[in-house]
Simulated scan of single mutants.
Amino acid sequence: MLGTGPALAGLEFLPFALGVIAGSVLAIKLGYRLAPRTLLVSGGLLTAAGFAWFGLTLGAALLATAVLIALTVLPRTSPPSRAEQADDRDALLARD
């Protein structure tokens, strides 16, 4: 991405974006057909295979950095749980 313009960088990310869209659609369809345990196990194995592939292609130091970012940043950006949403709603109602 370095050294390319914004339009070319966007085009280079296009396959990733299309993969995310296709994966989301597939996950919803599989969620209706398969048991949750099957989806969780297969998702975990797929994630492990992806980390192994990154480790083999990018090197251990870069993989460790990616895992560290994934474990520290991504959980903080996840949507709130239903309990947290209920607490927030109750706090808003109590202020009024």
Rank of each mutant, 00 (worst) to 15 (best):
V20A: 15
M1W: 10
P6V: 03
L45C: 14
F51G: 02
L71K: 00
G55K: 01
F13N: 03
A60W: 14
A48K: 01
L30S: 02
V73H: 04
D96P: 01
L68P: 02
A49Q: 03
T57C: 01
V67S: 03
R82K: 15
E84G: 01
D90C: 00
K29D: 12
G5E: 09
S78E: 07
L30N: 02
V25Y: 01
A60Q: 09
A94I: 02
E84P: 02
A61K: 09
G31S: 09
P36Y: 03
A70I: 06
R82N: 14
A7D: 04
R89N: 03
R82S: 15
D88K: 13
T38C: 04
R37G: 03
D87V: 08
Y32W: 14
T38G: 00
V20M: 15
A60R: 05
K29Q: 13
L56G: 10
D90E: 11
T72W: 06
L30I: 07
F51C: 01
L8E: 08
L68Q: 00
M1N: 12
Y32S: 13
A83D: 14
A91R: 15
M1G: 13
L62I: 04
S78L: 15
P79E: 08
G5D: 13
T77A: 12
L30M: 12
L30W: 12
G31E: 12
Q85P: 02
T4I: 11
D96F: 14
L45T: 01
P36E: 09
L56C: 03
F16N: 09
V20I: 15
L92Q: 13
A27T: 09
P36Q: 05
L46Y: 02
K29F: 13
L93T: 01
R33S: 02
S42G: 03
D87T: 12
E12C: 04
K29N: 10
L26F: 14
L8Q: 14
P79D: 06
R33G: 01
G23N: 13
L68C: 10
A52V: 02
S42F: 10
Y32V: 04
